[in-house]
Simulated assay, not measured.
Amino acid sequence: MRDKQQVFGYAGYEMRSHSETRWAALMDSISISWLYESQLIKTRHGYYLPDFYLPAVGLFVEVKGLGPTAVEIEKAEDAEAATGIPVIFAYGKPELLGAELAHGVVAYFNGAKRISFSTRELGALVRQSYDIHTYSAFICAGEHQGMPDSFSASDVMLEWVNKSMDRSGRESYAASLHGPLNQAKQDKHGQQSKAEWFLAKFAEKVRSRRKTSGRENYD
């Protein structure tokens, strides 16, 4: 039986899960610029490293397979309190159903309450705002792909290097790899895209409601 894969390459990055690479590709398909694991934040549950930061939007994105636990939501709340940057969760198992991307969710939690969008709803916005080629790229990027049956030679080498280091070593290595890639992406980013504009408006609404009413019911 093959050992569980720990490193998943995407665009030069070494990500921690297959789900992270899929959500990264989905964001790329609609021109949402992201930085990977760019900010370490102290929370009541220890240090927290959100998966993605969207610099043109002012949001963190945390990817979870089945959805966030109560502890993960508390980490996100602490991260927002410390930085002023809301954390949204991307989770589920997006798959193609009737030419639409279903079973994926993007959600912001406020205690036990949440505001959420399905990938089907997000796809409808993409279809309305972009051309058919962009919509097709969105669907292809987001659709769940099964794990490959075998590793490439480079994958095997990455896994070996990763497993040969302790946690501190792995974190230092990841930071040294991802830091320059993040900086290059940040330097390159230009005008805010349509999708980034939409998410920025959403982030503004979240910040405004938290300031004026605390744990308001968004449902």
Rank of each mutant, 00 (worst) to 15 (best):
A200W: 06
L97Y: 09
G214D: 13
K113I: 05
G92W: 07
Y53V: 01
L49M: 12
E20W: 03
E143L: 01
R120D: 10
I41N: 06
A153D: 12
E204H: 13
S38F: 00
N162L: 00
T43W: 05
I115P: 01
S208I: 08
H18Y: 06
R127K: 15
I73V: 15
R114H: 06
K75W: 07
K113Q: 14
E121V: 10
A175G: 04
L54F: 09
D28F: 01
I139V: 14
G46D: 09
F52S: 07
H45W: 15
E95V: 12
Q192Y: 00
V106M: 15
L49I: 08
E100Y: 03
W23P: 01
Q128N: 12
F60D: 03
Q39L: 12
S136C: 01
P86T: 09
W23E: 02
K75H: 10
A11I: 02
A153E: 12
V126Y: 05
F52M: 10
Y47M: 08
L59D: 02
M27N: 05
K75V: 08
L40K: 10
P180T: 06
E77F: 02
G58C: 10
P68K: 13
H45N: 15
A137G: 05
R22E: 05
R44P: 07
S31W: 05
S208N: 11
E20M: 03
R16L: 08
A200Q: 11
A141W: 02
N110M: 07
G65P: 12
D149S: 07
S129E: 10
I73A: 01
F8N: 05
S154G: 06
M15Q: 03
I85L: 04
K185S: 11
L125H: 04
I73F: 02
V63Q: 05
D187P: 00
G84H: 07
K4T: 13
D166T: 03
A102M: 13
K64I: 08
A107C: 11
G104V: 09
L54K: 03
D187N: 12
V57I: 09
Q39G: 00
R170F: 09
K75M: 13
K113N: 14
P180Y: 04
I132P: 00
F117E: 06
D28V: 05
E121A: 15
E72N: 14
R170C: 10
Y130A: 08
